[in-house]
Design a protein around this nucleic acid. Structure first.
Lengths: 347, 347
DNA sequence: TTGAAAGCGCTAACAA
DNA sequence: TTGTTAGCGCTTTCAA
């Protein structure tokens, strides 16, 4: 019984059972080449009978590449990334390509190690979050020759192709919207202890627009914890308890902002007259809140979909486009999937 | 340049560069056997210089098993499953074992196909959601001899080991709690068009307890969409608009229930005096809501952690415990991770 | 302490 | 239409 479990049937076994050569089994299993109906049926029956499951490791070794897409994510704690993963998964479903993945928790060292681990599977391609990667990571990837897609961000220099949106522009856009409503004294609430580089870029864009308008950010609170409604609620309470609280708060994402809404609802603070709020992401759950949050909707699913499509697609051609950017390694292409300001009731 | 990319360095290349045999490189890379300091250093330098990345496909083919854990999930649209996946991921991180996964969208056929696909990687183990699997799926798994862990549920007959909790008991527990508060006329709101078997089990337990108490479920609304706050909000509106609305609503999960809370907040419906609510899961975001939802907290992360630990653990021993259950194939072990009723403000 | 040979399961290329 | 051979990159076994 145990022996039987250890002895997974191979093509050789199926061949013996069907009375043909192993090569014929290979042809039948993959539907390639010519095989007579009789033989084909005999092989298929034998395979079914033995419970044959192909060994993809052998095929992949032979092919020098595995039908796998490696996915690196900053965290699984944020819905945004499970949505990206979902986009990848959906696109891959049925294609016979599986996603393998790992999580960095926003650590560059962890990313280095993880990328090496994942590349050792010789995947068809690898998806990385953002454009910032250590020299070692870039070197490993370059040496491996694997196809790369970076997602989330396009403010920077892609290794190959980036599917995302301008985080800086999103921050700027939010600021302009809030400024247009007349707010002048702003607060900012973030999380992850500033390790989320995309959030920092949004803040950068936001800050620049605020400064250009002569307005100011009077409070900036970046909590060390991962973002959550609870953290957002607490941080909001803290910011609003200050002597001179801001008129409007920009949150690094919707979870935090929704926490802010909850605080206001619970404390009877009027939105936006007492305080205005804005988030980022446009997560679906916002639709259900009693107050419609002003936010920036991002094409998270699309980023995963496009990245996966790019990696399994036929477009193998190394496009010979001349570098418009004189910097080294600047051969990357940026695909701007855009974003959309959602003008809610909180500003 | 292209050639270089295609020619990933192998141990043979490293060996040539270091002036040793390929076997010596193998030993150095894995730190096994005896190697002199000089040789070791020479090999390591050569490997680094060439950007050598081991080919796990070859190792796995040789070993007849890959350092991979296959994970089957019903969906990535529900936070619960990304939390399970997170538990798996966290447990695997640093062990050199990666998760490969796929999503069934609650389809048994898709599960069959997916399991076959995933097993073709010869993973160390496979994690399946729930205890209900088609005959074909069970057969494939049995034939492969792969280690299995089922998660979420323990009401049934595990293939091998199940890490979960009793969904039936959870439903029953919620009913008893609500009954103890004096409610007699209940409503039920679900989603996924009844494809979520665990939700059905909870409803079963809930219904049984209600019936035993002589109370009744006057409305039952199962929406076809995946669950979300928005769906919950709409469904709640619908149920409460009826001529004789229930006094209390049991939701198949927290997302739906939170949507119910939002509806009530927006419409000025008092909770729990106008209507009482209860959910399921105990998701972290509930903490931030203005009203604390009564729910049942489940050890989702733990299910992933325990399942992963079991699959990569040393416990290879085929325990020779006698079947207490006379049914065929009933050698499974059930690990009850329990659940906890959270007595909030909504009942 | 190091090396040579064999083979894991599969497929491309060629032969019959 | 079917079969034979060689080899993908690695590790186990045995030899030096």
């Amino acid at each position: 019984m145990v022996d039987k479990a250890e002895m997974r049937p191979t093509m050789e076994d199926v061949a013996a059972a069907a009375g043909v050569s192993q090569m014929t089994v290979s042809r039948v299993m993959r539907g390639t080449g010519q095989t007579s109906d009789k033989v084909r049926k005999r092989v298929q029956d034998a395979a079914r009978l033995l419970g044959y499951v192909p060994n993809r490791l052998a095929t992949a070794l032979r092919d020098e590449t595995a039908p796998l897409i490696a996915v690196v994510l900053p965290t699984l704690g944020n819905r945004v990334f499970s949505e990206v993963l979902n986009g990848v998964q959906t696109t891959l479903a049925g294609s016979g390509v599986q996603p393998v993945f790992g999580v960095t928790e926003y650590s560059a060292e962890r990313e280095e190690e993880l990328v090496r681990d994942l590349l050792s599977w010789r995947p068809r391609g690898i998806i990385l979050p953002g454009l910032e990667h250590s020299q070692a990571t870039r070197a490993t990837i370059r040496a491996s020759g694997v196809r790369v897609a970076e997602v989330m961000d396009i403010d920077g220099d892609p290794i190959s192709v980036a599917f995302g949106m301008s985080q800086i522009a999103a921050g700027r856009c939010t600021a302009q919207h809030m400024l247009s409503k007349g707010y002048r004294r702003f607060g900012y609430i973030g999380s992850q202890g500033g390790k989320d580089l995309r959030a920092l870029k949004r803040l950068e864009g936001f800050r620049a627009a605020i400064r250009e308008a002569g307005a100011q950010i009077v409070t900036q609170l970046i909590r060390p914890e991962p973002s959550s409604m609870t953290v957002g609620r607490r941080a909001t309470a803290e910011v609003l308890a200050q002597a001179h609280p801001p008129q409007a708060i920009y949150y690094s994402n919707d979870d935090l902002a929704a926490g802010g809404i909850m605080h206001c609802l619970s404390e009877g603070i009027a939105i936006p007259s007492d305080v205005a709020l804005a988030g980022f992401n446009g997560l679906p759950f916002l639709e259900a809140l009693p107050v419609r949050l002003t936010t920036v909707e991002t094409p998270r699913l699309q980023m995963g979909v496009q990245a996966a499509l790019h990696l399994i697609g036929q477009e193998t051609d190394q496009d010979g486009n001349q570098d418009r950017d004189p910097e080294r390694h600047s051969t990357g292409r940026r695909v701007d999937l855009g974003f959309q300001l959602i003008d809610g009731d909180t500003c």
